[in-house]
Amino acid sequence: MSARDGPTLIGSVQRALRLLEVVSAHANGAPAKQLAREAGLAPATTYHLLRTLVHDGYLRKLDGGVFVLGDKVQALHTRSRGQAMLSRIRPVLTGLRDELGTAAYLTFYEDGEIRVAEVVDSPRAYRVDLWVGCEDSGHATALGKSVLRELDDEARQEYLSRHTLADLTPRTITRPSELLRRLDASPAAPAVTDLEEYSLGTVCVAVPVYWGDTVGSLGVPLPVDRRSRLREIPERLIPAANRVTRGLSLTI
């Protein structure tokens, strides 16, 4: 790109953003001519930008010839909201990492899947590599089992109907009935453990968190030679999870 091209590209971006601002002011949409007038743009420029923004999903053209914001804008808003949420609760996870000397993991149950939302670690913190994603290993991780324990019977059965309980280690629970029995009989509730079920040499403990009606989990891993600490970890995890839930409530 030459120096001469720079201002032209910047101007195009500015005009596109101005057009998006004008469209956002009309809940029921507005036609191209009105948008051009309100944005202070030439009609030809407006039509070109509208076609581009519709093509890329930032605007939609309705049957009446009016333009409204598209799904891409909503997606940007959702991601921005998620970033704001994580920035609010990240200090809690950082404090947990520093106190326990292990990485802190946060998950949420979204669209029927258990997904990692944040990992706070450091070069000196113990961590476990998620070689199989939480979407496919919910039955074998403390993070996933914590979420499953909080779901009602119908939601659990629906989840299990879509996921194979893969045999990740010799200790992995692969029978749905046994998994559910152990979840309901967990003696350390609300804490849930993974005793080398996901990765040999690693044990984990997790507790639930909530973002409105969305359940998630907060958990930490430990090397198996520190397994004796599992009993004391919930005493640190539960207050941290409560702070996370309170922080999340401010972003709803």
Rank of each mutant, 00 (worst) to 15 (best):
Y109N: 03
V224T: 10
R226K: 00
L50Y: 01
V215W: 05
L69S: 13
R90T: 11
T8S: 10
E154C: 06
E135C: 05
L130H: 04
L41P: 01
V215L: 06
G138E: 03
L160F: 10
E178A: 15
E99A: 12
S217V: 02
L250A: 13
H26V: 05
E113T: 12
V22K: 09
I114R: 05
D63A: 12
A241Y: 03
G212I: 04
E110L: 14
A206D: 06
G101S: 08
L250H: 09
I89F: 03
A191Q: 05
V205D: 06
L168I: 04
R79V: 09
L250Y: 11
S161M: 08
G57R: 09
Y198K: 02
L9A: 14
D129Q: 13
S122R: 12
L230D: 07
G82K: 07
S87C: 03
Y105R: 02
G6R: 15
R243L: 15
Y198R: 03
L17H: 07
S87M: 10
R171D: 07
N28T: 12
A25W: 11
T45M: 09
R175H: 14
E113M: 13
D136M: 10
V132D: 02
D167F: 08
S228P: 00
G138C: 04
G70E: 09
G101R: 06
L230F: 09
G57I: 08
D153Y: 08
V92L: 05
P91A: 05
R229Q: 09
V220S: 02
L222C: 00
L237T: 01
V23N: 08
L130G: 02
A27N: 07
S161R: 14
L168Q: 04
R175L: 14
F108Y: 08
I173M: 13
P91D: 07
T214R: 09
G64S: 11
A142V: 02
D98H: 10
D71W: 06
D225V: 05
L183T: 09
R181D: 14
K72G: 02
L19A: 05
E113H: 15
R127Q: 12
S80F: 14
N28V: 08
A75W: 07
L165A: 11
T202C: 05
D111K: 11
A191C: 08
D194N: 10
R124V: 11
S199Q: 11
V203H: 02
A125H: 10
G112I: 06
Y58M: 11
G40C: 01
P7F: 12
T141L: 12
A125S: 15
P187N: 11
P7H: 12
A191H: 06
T202L: 00
A189E: 07
Y58E: 12
L76P: 04
A42D: 15
A36S: 08
V120A: 08
A25G: 13
E150G: 13
P7W: 12
